[in-house]
Design a binder for these strands. Structure first.
Lengths: 154, 154
DNA sequence: TTGGGTGCAAAGGCTTTGCATGTGA
DNA sequence: TCACATGCAAAGCCTTTGCACCCAA
């Protein structure tokens, strides 16, 4: 599999867009942290370590671009920040979307794969005539770590 | 089943909160539109038809209150607006959460019930030790109406 | 009477946009 | 060269907050 960096360059070129240091740097920040869900501000902070001159607006503009190119996925937890992660397709075999487990105590986000929804989507198509193209599943609860920690306290 | 209005009054009273016309009016706007997903601004407009003097801040404050009392559900489509609907529990028999089908063309939102996730949640508990408390499922696609409309155009 | 509730306007906080300058192709 | 990209600051936009007044209980 080509690195997301090379793939990104090709995508930019074929779309008549320019390859800039800022764009590469932002993609690398995300690529180097698969499974991490970073806010725009966090991406900005990481990129600044190497490129102190970058502006937050560029981060937002690049995020939008990466999103349109399907290189990153959005995650909205409803806390006022939109989070981004490198698209799972770059890192996992034949994975379409994955789902998220969000711990209500520590805030950690875990990913998991499941094909359960395929049946559901077929059912929806049959009964309602609604054709599902994409889905988003968020499960809120308590992660193993937090459960274990609590039982230790007793 | 007691009306959500009476239930609401009881909830307010037992929590030492006051029963005001504004609070009742906002709840009624939502109660009269089950399955509709209204933004704060939309709720504000509807309430103003009867109570022109109400302020948008009161709508936001009351929405928060209704949310904490579990009388309304939030829906975040990531378009910059948070939407609210009267809790399905008030209108459907033994329904926990329902899921949402969002049409990418007309923007209409359809609800559906499904217990498929119960299996999934049990599986997650067994394999990952993560205890799911609540979930949110959004399916994006094309609704029957829009599909039919398109095939007519051909 | 009186403390919670409301209306208004201002402030917050994330994100987008305008514009002059910079730069990859 | 030159159209696209960037940085900065200002503007947008939804939502929250401060404060004086109001009104259920």
């Amino acid at each position: 599999m080509p690195s997301s960096r090379e793939q990104f360059k090709v995508l930019l070129r074929t779309n008549g867009l320019k390859i800039t240091n800022q764009r590469i740097a932002i993609l690398e920040v995300l690529s180097n942290r698969p499974g991490k869900h970073l806010t725009a501000e966090e991406i900005y902070e990481y990129v600044r370590e190497e490129h102190p001159e970058i502006g937050l607006a560029t981060v937002y503009r690049t995020i939008l671009l990466l999103s349109e190119l399907n290189l990153i996925d959005k995650l909205n937890l409803g806390d006022g920040y939109v989070r981004y992660e490198i698209s799972a397709k770059r890192h996992e075999e034949n994975s379409h979307h994955h789902h998220h487990l969000i711990c209500l105590e520590c805030g950690n986000i875990y990913a998991f794969q499941d094909d359960l929804l395929e049946n559901l989507e077929a059912k929806i198509k049959d009964t309602l005539g609604f054709e599902v193209m994409d889905h988003e599943v968020k499960l809120y609860g308590h992660c193993k770590k937090c459960i274990d920690k609590k039982s230790e306290e007793i």
